Amino acid sequence: FSGYFSKDAIIEAVHHADIAGAGYAYYMVLFGVFVTAFYSFRLFFLVFHGEERMDEHTREQLHETRPVVTIPLILLAIPSAIIGWITIETVLFGGYFGNAIFILDDHGAMAAVAETFHGPASFVAHGFTGLPLYLAAAGVFSAWYIYLKKPSIADAAEQKFSFLYKLLDQKYYFDRFNEIVFAGGSRAIGQVLWRLGDSLLIDGLVVNGSAKLVGWLSGVVRQVQTGYLNHYAFTMITGLILLLGWAVLG
């Protein structure tokens, strides 16, 4: 399948690399092959095989996916099974990417892979002589044996390595860290901005402050509204004098 051609090409390139740390990287990608096969088929075996862990209500909700989901998956699966075979040589060693990818002269891993590449058929045959295929098979077998044949092994490992199990189950506590530091910190900053900006400045000063100012001015102006004609006449005369003074002196 296409994943085989892309992943094995990466592993081969790391294997032929001669830069610092390449040996360590090679063993890590080999370990990744085993782990990927192990957890992928662990998921497969737990979901589709073995003892059911669903209640009756959940079982009643099971149904086949609609064609709007199934048909695109089928249309994607068909080319994915053959496109790696067709395009591997062009993508890896041809001009498929043009000048988008540039390899320095000091990194000769891909050149070394190209020297041993003699077509997709030989590339597949070469896979039977390397470790990745057998490590992947070992991962599949380990998942089958531990989670279907001898599930007590998984239970015993969980009890014996409870700290490691909890560490992995909690994803190294990165989610908790993000929840407390980033999400919690963002919420705390939001609370401060809400109290200072929204409640105190906008609502307290601008909105409510404006209302209070208008109320205070209304209370002051209300003192002038006495209802006596002589007060109104005095106010009009005073205003007229001020207006004439401004016109004459201005």
Rank of each mutant, 00 (worst) to 15 (best):
A81G: 13
I10P: 01
A125D: 08
Y232L: 12
L92Q: 08
L167R: 00
A125L: 14
G190W: 08
P132F: 06
I241C: 10
Q170L: 03
F45K: 14
I237R: 03
G245Q: 09
I101P: 01
M236F: 13
G209M: 13
R66K: 13
V47A: 12
K150G: 00
S122A: 14
R66L: 00
I83F: 13
F93T: 01
L133Y: 10
L200S: 11
H126Q: 12
Q61S: 10
M28K: 09
F177A: 12
H231K: 03
K171V: 15
D203C: 06
E12M: 04
L217N: 07
D18V: 12
T226R: 05
G250L: 06
L92G: 00
S199W: 08
E52T: 00
L240R: 02
F234L: 15
F117V: 01
I88M: 12
M236E: 10
L229A: 13
A136I: 01
Y96A: 15
G185F: 09
L242Q: 12
L76F: 12
A37W: 04
K150H: 14
G21D: 08
D198M: 13
G227S: 05
E64Q: 09
M110G: 01
M236K: 04
W85T: 13
Q159G: 03
F174M: 11
G227M: 02
G185L: 10
F128S: 04
Q159D: 14
D55C: 02
D8I: 00
G204T: 11
I74L: 15
L249S: 10
E179Q: 09
W144K: 11
L193T: 13
P67A: 05
S218G: 15
I241S: 07
V224I: 04
S122M: 07
L244V: 15
G239V: 06
L196Y: 11
E89Y: 03
A37K: 02
L131H: 02
F123A: 10
L46A: 12
V33E: 08
F38R: 14
D18E: 15
D203F: 11
V181E: 01
H15N: 09
D55Y: 02
G219T: 13
G184T: 10
Y145L: 09
H15A: 14
T87Y: 13
G127W: 04
A125G: 04
Q191M: 14
L168P: 00
Q225E: 15
H15R: 14
P79Y: 11
V68C: 04
I189H: 05
K150C: 00
N178Q: 05
V192L: 15
L168C: 11
L75S: 07
F141Q: 03
L148V: 08
A100G: 01
Y24E: 07
A125N: 08
R222L: 05
T65K: 15
